[in-house]
Simulated assay, not measured.
Amino acid sequence: MTKRMIDYWVIPPENDAEFVACMEEVLETYERPYDADHPVICMDEQPVQLIKETRQPIEAAKDHPKRVDYEYERNGTASIFMFSEPLSGFRQATARSQRTKVDWAQEVAQLLDTRYADCQQVTLVLDNLNTHTKGAFYELFEPAVARAYVKRITFVYTPKHGSWLNVAECELSAMTRQCLTGRRVGELDELRDEIGAWSDQTNQKQRGVDCQLQIDEARTKLARLYPKN
């Protein structure tokens, strides 16, 4: 039997009005010039398996690389929350033991209370997970506090099967390759330290993201996604 390689993709639907409506809203958001008083923030989440060593690794020496035993111990899972401000070059990666509505609301509120404390409004680009709702703030805070947070956020949702439009997903991919791939991280605190260090180091480079795809170009290159009027 001939072996065939398979690539797994997020394949967008064709002739889908809802998809292109959400896509154009995201692209229009990315076209906005940078505004420190009303920044555009992207966020995404990623589960990760915590894996502990069962034996002490042997550190690298001149005559051999670091040696790690092939046995390992699963130590539960965690969820990484990535926030990225494309035009300023800022990103923040944090981790929690789970990703409930309350966890998500706590992460967003923490950013609004610290980095964006002086911003009356922020635009948040995110996907359509059932935890990413305005109601999540009401599950965590008293109504008046929840409403105050919600009023400061303009929500822009990527279309279903359109998560590739989220810059934070690209940041998560880069972080995974540069920080986690090929390594074993066994504890939640260790994971937080590692991804926090990656965020700080990457932020020092001030590496921003400039989305090149604009609406007019999308209507031509991605014409198959649009309804045939």
Rank of each mutant, 00 (worst) to 15 (best):
G162H: 00
R99S: 07
S199C: 12
F90M: 07
C22Y: 06
A60V: 05
A174L: 07
E53C: 06
D103Y: 03
P57H: 11
P57M: 09
M43Q: 12
I58G: 03
G208C: 14
V156N: 00
L87T: 08
C211M: 13
T114N: 15
Q121A: 07
C22D: 06
T114C: 12
I41A: 04
Q92D: 11
V125C: 03
D63A: 11
Q56T: 12
N75H: 08
T176M: 04
L124H: 02
L172G: 03
P86V: 01
A60H: 07
K151Q: 13
E139Q: 14
S84C: 14
D35R: 06
F81Y: 13
E187K: 14
M5L: 14
L87E: 06
G162Y: 00
M82E: 09
P227I: 05
G135Y: 05
R91D: 05
V185R: 02
S173N: 13
T154R: 05
Q110I: 00
F141I: 10
Q110G: 11
N15G: 12
Q212S: 12
R183P: 09
A168Y: 04
N128F: 01
A144P: 03
V102W: 07
E187W: 11
T158W: 02
K221Y: 06
Q212T: 11
H161G: 01
F90W: 14
F90S: 04
D63L: 10
H38L: 07
G135H: 05
T77K: 14
T29C: 09
Y116S: 02
V125Y: 03
V145D: 13
F155G: 02
D118P: 00
Q92I: 00
F90R: 08
G89V: 10
H161N: 12
G89R: 09
E142M: 09
M175Q: 02
D7G: 10
R207T: 15
E45F: 05
R147W: 11
Y30M: 01
L191A: 12
Y116K: 03
L126E: 01
Y116P: 01
